[in-house]
Design a protein around this nucleic acid. Structure first.
Length: 523
RNA sequence: CGCGGGGUAGAGCAGUAGCAGCUCGCCUGGCUCAUAACCAGGAGGUCGUGGGUGCGAAUCCCACCCCCGCAACCA
């Protein structure tokens, strides 16, 4: 059995979850579920990044200690799991003691390698960004993104990481692994960036000024800069450095990140891995940004979008669908209420929901809910390996698998495969090339095909002619089988909806769902 | 000469030389199984601008205009 590790970036817990992170984690969720359905043993990690100056100050302002402050925010991120039906099986917090120890060990390894040294550090620093700012990024001495905050002069002795040393090794690695970063243009950007040369970066802060961080081993006066410790989570989450069995069976893994995180993930983190003597990540998936009506989403513009609002009004799968279909998987996309409604009504209510309704209604009305159909192919058993997991004592995996296959029936779903390129094959190809929007497009093409077949064959006419009974049975049986195929293909994308569809069409007596899957919404 | 991406129908996009396409929206017709859903047809584009090469250019070449991201660690 293959093992598959995927992790999102860890959002910084100084604000509530927003739609941009929902995009990232939903994409990762689909990929994780898709692998699980193929029978892979999946480890899916997410969590929260909780150190650093911004958290420290936020906590002071709120009159809380930093840990309690972080606890409250971390809980909100973990709420996304049930709200969006996410399947992650690990939620790491960078304040977890195991992670803190891992970060310290990682530091020691880099230090042993001679990659950590002390140097005076003078910069202009924006607390809002938690970033060093170049003169070119300032306007009237203020950060463009946080003009209300004073730029701070930092002048202190810090530890630096010898990033510059890894230029050639990274370039060689990129050359050997041209698909290390997807999409291609991001890989290209990374290569160009690296070719220009890398400058060592600061990885610690004076504890007297900012105590909220992982202690630097052997120096009580310093704590790690938040990025250094946060990046280590990708390996600490799977047991490094204590549980090598676990670590070796899952690493290297796939990481998802926004395009703003390209350098940290695809370059700086990889240099850190080289320094610590660990294998580099398997692949970095870079998604784009969500705009709203073409505008950048920001608190100051007041156009932020809360995923919870949409989930409450339309359901988790509706939001999942929009994010996966309307936003190109590895490119920027737009999110507006109008577009959301349009997608919802056109694709979910009129398309999928109506298709389920009309087919099941006809089967009930014309065939008394009973349909006999021949399956040309059953879903291969490896797609349901939960018993194997149970035998091996992997109860977490078994449970995870069961949640994925709920409603599929004991013997697994029987899927009718058409000749030639099946729907599932098209979906698989799209998922493997990370074109999740195209995978959904393929499923919806199938729905359109079924709608057309209904119109062409006119079952309501056949039903009036006793001589056409067999014809009608075959037609409706085929449509039910198509719904099973659609439900199966849809499972990683819209897990709840897929389960509902399969439950209805696998029932001994087929009747329409109690309530429409996606009631049409007035515009 | 910093690096990279982009400009095609009202919106979002595909299309790297051979009749300009897809989805949504809009208009008309059909149908009645279905969630006023579904099916068919239609309107709508000087393919950013100007030049060049070709029998033929959205596509190749040259120049220019505009938009966006990155420019050392902002979702």
């Amino acid at each position: 059995m293959k093992r598959f590790y995927i992790t999102t970036t860890l959002p910084y817990v100084n604000a509530d979850p927003h739609v941009g992170f929902a995009l990232e984690i939903v994409q990762a969720d689909v990929i994780a579920r898709w692998h699980a359905m193929r029978g892979d043993e999946v480890f899916f990690n997410t969590g929260t990044d909780e150190h650093g100056l911004k958290i420290y100050r936020g906590a002071l302002a709120a009159g809380l200690n930093p840990k309690s402050y972080a606890d409250a925010h971390a809980a909100k991120y973990d709420e996304l799991k049930s709200a969006l039906h996410l399947s992650y099986n690990n939620f790491i917090r960078t304040t977890d003691s195991h992670h803190v120890q891992a970060a310290e060990e990682f530091w020691r390894r880099c230090a042993e390698r001679g990659d950590i040294y002390k140097k005076n550090y003078q910069i202009k620093y924006c607390v809002g960004c938690e970033l060093e700012k170049m003169e070119s990024e300032l306007e009237d001495g203020r950060c463009l993104l946080h003009p209300h905050l004073e730029i701070e002069q930092v002048d202190e002795e810090n530890y630096f990481f010898r990033y510059s040393r890894y230029r050639d090794e990274l370039l060689e690695f990129y050359a050997k692994n041209p698909e290390f970063v997807v999409p291609k243009n991001r890989m290209h950007e990374m290569v160009k960036f690296t070719e220009r040369g890398l400058q060592d970066f600061s990885i610690s802060r004076l504890k007297s000024k900012m105590p909220w961080g992982v202690p630097v081993p052997g120096d009580d006066a310093q704590v790690m800069y938040v990025w250094f410790d946060a990046l280590v989570n990708y390996v600490s989450a799977i047991g490094w450095p204590d549980d090598f069995k676990k670590f070796n069976s899952f690493w290297p893994g796939v990481q998802t990140a926004g395009k703003d995180n390209l350098r940290q993930q695809a370059s700086m983190w990889q240099a850190m891995l080289l320094s610590a003597g660990l294998p580099l990540s398997k692949q970095i998936l870079i998604h784009g940004f969500i705009t709203s009506a073409g505008q950048k989403i920001s608190k100051s513009l007041g156009n932020t979008i809360s995923p919870f609002d949409y989930i409450e009004e339309f359901g988790a799968d509706a939001l999942r669908y929009y994010l996966l279909r309307e936003i190109p998987t590895l490119d920027d996309g737009d999110f507006t209420h109008e577009k959301f409604l349009a997608r919802y009504n056109a694709d979910l209510a009129n398309g999928l929901g109506n298709q389920v309704q009309r087919v099941t209604a006809m089967v009930e009305k014309y065939l008394d809910g009973k349909v006999t159909y021949k399956f040309s192919h059953a879903c291969p058993p490896y797609a349901f390996p939960r018993k194997q997991f149970a035998r091996e004592g992997k109860y977490e995996q078994e449970k995870y698998c069961r949640s994925l296959t709920a409603g599929f029936g004991r013997r697994g779903l029987k899927v009718k495969y058409g000749g030639g390129g099946t729907l599932q094959a098209r979906v698989n190809a799209a998922v493997q090339s990370y074109q999740l929007d195209q995978a959904l497009a393929a499923i919806w093409a199938k729905i359109a095909e079924c709608d057309k077949r209904v119109d062409d064959e006119k079952p309501w006419v056949l039903a009036k002619d006793a001589g056409e009974k067999e014809h009608l049975r075959k037609l409706l049986g085929g449509l039910v089988a198509d719904l099973q195929e659609i439900g199966h293909a849809l499972t990683p994308f819209l897990p709840q909806t897929a389960e509902s569809i399969l439950k209805v069409v696998n029932a001994p007596k087929i009747i329409p769902p109690e309530a429409p899957l996606f009631p049409r919404k007035a515009i």
